[in-house]
Computed example of a mutant assay.
Amino acid sequence: MYFGLREGFWPHAKIPSDSLDTFDYSDRPLSEEASAFIREQRNKEIATDRFSPAFGPDLLPGMFSSPVGAVPKPHSSGLRLITDQSAGPHAPNSFIPRDAAAVRYDNMHDFGKLLHKVHSQHGRPPTYLFKSDCSEAFRRIPMHVLWQIRQVVTVDGE
């Protein structure tokens, strides 16, 4: 954890040395509404230093531009930005071994079991409960610079 927070996390990816080709899968057709939304999201990501400004239309060796899109948010009229990290034979996700990628997130059932266990052990529920804001957790986790430079988001050819 210490090195991940200081130097960035590495997702157990095993990248073969022959994967230095560039792959650009960003040319999927989008509606004008989706394109406008993606531009707006790109600008927000640049403003918060999570995206760098555009460096031109050409990818550098080893870079991969994943397709982006916009899908409707559930129970809302808004859109949500999506990035397909699994598209194509050299997608970022294809370098992560399946056995290293298994993640199970806590849910309300797990929380209920934990509350029941605490109540059984201590004869009362916990005195305090708090909820952390994880709204952008995957955007806030620092990724290792060598993992970052492989991934490009192309918007309007830049």
Rank of each mutant, 00 (worst) to 15 (best):
S35F: 06
A137H: 05
A87L: 11
T48N: 06
P72Q: 14
E7F: 15
P57S: 12
P67R: 11
P16A: 15
A87F: 14
F37S: 05
A100G: 10
S135E: 10
G123A: 09
S132K: 03
R139W: 02
T154C: 08
I149E: 11
P72E: 15
H116G: 04
P126G: 06
A100Q: 15
D133E: 09
L114M: 09
R139E: 04
H109C: 02
S19W: 05
V68S: 13
E7P: 03
K44Y: 03
R50A: 01
M108P: 00
I96S: 15
F111N: 00
P67E: 03
G78H: 15
K73E: 14
K113Q: 13
N43S: 13
V155C: 04
H116N: 03
A70D: 06
F130C: 12
V71W: 11
F51T: 00
I38N: 01
T22R: 13
V71Q: 07
T22E: 09
S19N: 12
V152D: 02
L81T: 00
N43Q: 12
D27M: 08
W10D: 07
P57Y: 06
L129H: 11
Q148G: 09
S94I: 05
S66T: 13
D156T: 10
R42I: 02
Q85E: 10
V71H: 09
S77Q: 13
A70M: 10
I149R: 09
T83P: 01
H119L: 05
Y2S: 03
F37T: 02
S19F: 09
L115K: 04
G69R: 07
A102D: 02
M63H: 15
M1D: 04
M63V: 06
E136H: 14
G4D: 04
P125T: 02
H109T: 07
D24H: 05
I96A: 14
Q85H: 13
R139T: 01
R150K: 11
P61K: 15
S76T: 08
G123V: 07
D18R: 13
I38F: 03
L5K: 07
Y128A: 11
Q41G: 05
R50N: 10
R80S: 07
R150W: 14
P92H: 15
H116D: 06
D106M: 04
F9R: 01
P53N: 08
R6V: 10
D110V: 01
V152M: 11
S52C: 12
W147T: 04
H119V: 00
D21I: 03
S31W: 04
W10V: 03
R104P: 02
P11A: 10
M143V: 04
V71E: 01
P29Q: 09
N43W: 01
D156F: 05
P61E: 11
E32F: 06
D156H: 05
T48I: 09
V118F: 14
S76R: 12
P67V: 05
